[in-house]
Design a protein around this nucleic acid. Sequence first.
DNA 1: TCGTATGTTATTGTATGGAAGTGTACGCAA
DNA 2: TTGCGTACACTTCCATACAATAACATACGA
Lengths: 223, 223
Amino acid sequence: MTVRTASESMAHKVERQLRGDILTLVLQPGARISEQEIGERYGSSRQPGREALIALAKSRLVEILPQRGAVVAKISVSKLMQAAFIRETIETAIVSTACNAFHFHARQRLDDCLKEQARAAESGNRAEFRRYDDLFHKALAEGAGLPMAWAVVEDLKAHIDRACCLSLHAPETLAKLIEEHRAIVAAIDQRDETAARAAMTAHLCELLHDLPRLEAEHPDLFE
Amino acid sequence: MTVRTASESMAHKVERQLRGDILTLVLQPGARISEQEIGERYGSSRQPGREALIALAKSRLVEILPQRGAVVAKISVSKLMQAAFIRETIETAIVSTACNAFHFHARQRLDDCLKEQARAAESGNRAEFRRYDDLFHKALAEGAGLPMAWAVVEDLKAHIDRACCLSLHAPETLAKLIEEHRAIVAAIDQRDETAARAAMTAHLCELLHDLPRLEAEHPDLFE
DNA sequence: TCGTATGTTATTGTATGGAAGTGTACGCAA
DNA sequence: TTGCGTACACTTCCATACAATAACATACGA
């Protein structure tokens, strides 16, 4: 037990896997989880499980009830709307900045992401699609010289992602998302701040359309 | 040992105190700290010390060197500038929102903060002044219906605060800060978004003037 | 029946032992 | 002197033992 793979600590591994299972709704909102249980689930003792829970509680993905246990946080419309608002605020500022100065090597990464994302969309690999979606937004932030901004957004995004997981996007929706990414890149290349901000806003709004329907269909997963 | 005071766990207490000592430069940037040492310093065993270090590493206030120890993060101009940028982005969005709708009970809190802050400024109590400064910004966010936004800003603010701690403000500077707060409130009362955003931007820029001087005077505290 | 007291169980919170990793000092040979 | 190898000290990281606490069930008395 506890054979550490090269560089990643057990605690970090448990945290990463637990976060993944929560974000993909493998662990459903409202589920009770204990440190012990989490440790066993991912092949460790209580201690790494405990650290994972504390870490995820900081992102508000789990709620720790003192002396009693923890539960996977339910999807909160309020938290989701706030996260979406803050995300839009930050990401529009990112693309604004990107229009004025963009690091060369990050520009290349944007194209790579677009390509890989298109491939994932074709093969219907949603996990891969999402991964490159994240990498795209990360590359935008880094290109604008604002890596911390992505760290903030990534944390907020968790609350949005679980809702996204409920609304299974059709292939044409995936294609549309890629097109929106292209529009953002085009606006940055032309240094057109107004267009870039508008493109980013449109891109992020995409996700909120279905929210009322989702809540109606899955009332038990919402707060 | 380990007598828990009602509701706060030892781990949480150690984290709070350690954060305080780092933000006020009692623990200087660059200082090496171990779990053991932190535990002893605040009267606990290694475990709460460890949890505190992990928590503060998440806010990037300490850097954990795997298998080796931890150091108080040096003040990074890059992180500081990014934090300031993101903070300004979020807080201007907050006051924009506040102009369109502001919760009544939070409005009262704003006035309370202004009053208490003025009192702290007169008596020269800087810690108290800061505390009400935070509460003011928090009340703004909550009044706008965006408590999560404050949570994000509060975390980012840490990087800015340490630099602020270096530049000892004169009493007239404190008065000026309060005046800026008043201007923000006035703009919100008049529902003047443009003025509110401008007032907030001016208020936050205040802090960055001294930065080059500070870095020159304390090169060892910077990255 | 209702409310209170008590015991049981599950869980966290804390302390501590031990394994493994990292850097350093030292000795020794070339 | 320089380079190398070994031993050592220090630290994290994980596992586990123990204490404290909250919730629940159950028993008891009014």
